[in-house]
Design a protein around this nucleic acid. Structure first.
Length: 212
DNA sequence: ACTTCGATGCTCT
DNA sequence: GAGCATCGAAGTA
């Protein structure tokens, strides 16, 4: 039984942390007051992205970063939500407090509690349940107001590391999705060939050499 | 108070 | 693959 990743695990480079999160497990415990037994919703992490201010143009560019400058006070290993187009996106703050950087969880493959997830987020095609950053937030029934600011190892929502780091040949490295600046940075990591990876196309071709 | 923007998702062709 | 609804936050006034 592996222990949840502690907040200290996220006090580093979000690019490395994101890469090593692939194959891990996102665990959501839903309190069930009737049975006094928590319902467990879990999924394997199959897609993540890294954001790393201030060297990251996607993060620093224009008002994009300034808009969330308040996030810079958040200590590493804290759950937080980005809002884009009215949808909440789940991420974990990284690096030391005072530096804005994060890992964005973009897709999971459901493991436990698929039926419960479908009640939170009814879909016709099962594969559409959690194959997007906001989709998984809805499918897990996460309330941003309740989760945001909580430590990443909180009982109600935490992460388990992969049994072993995924070998490089299983990891596909591409450009991040849906951004204007920083399109060439190879900071999106997906499990190669996994059908639960989001359908969104990466924003552009990669830089010749990965940035650190 | 009003305007603009976006790390998205959904519903059509 | 294109169009649009969505909503929280910043900037402007």
């Amino acid at each position: 039984m592996t222990a949840p990743l502690p907040p200290a695990h996220f006090a580093g480079n979000p690019v490395e942390i994101a890469r090593n999160l692939l194959g891990g497990t996102l665990v959501r415990q839903v309190p069930d007051h009737e049975n006094r037994v928590g319902i467990r919703l879990t999924g394997t992490i199959v897609e993540v992205e890294a954001y790393d201010c201030p060297r990251d143009p996607a993060c620093t560019a224009g008002r994009f970063h300034a808009a969330r400058s308040a996030d810079m006070a958040i200590p590493p290993g804290t759950w937080l939500f980005w809002t884009a187009h009215g949808h909440p996106l789940l991420q974990v703050a990284c690096r030391p407090e005072g530096v804005s950087a994060s890992v964005l969880i973009r897709a999971i493959q459901p493991l436990e509690g698929l039926g419960q997830m479908l009640t939170f987020r009814p879909v016709t095609r099962e594969r559409d349940l959690t194959n997007g950053p906001a989709k998984l937030v809805y499918a897990l029934g996460l309330d941003p107001a309740r989760i945001s600011g909580r430590p990443v190892n909180a009982p109600e929502l935490h992460l388990l590391p992969p049994p072993a780091p995924l070998p490089d040949e299983m990891v596909e490295v591409t450009a991040r999705v849906g951004i204007r600046e920083g399109r060439t940075l190879p900071w999106r990591f997906t499990v190669r060939g996994n059908p639960w990876v989001s359908p969104a196309a990466p924003s552009m071709d990669l830089a010749l050499s990965p940035a650190e």
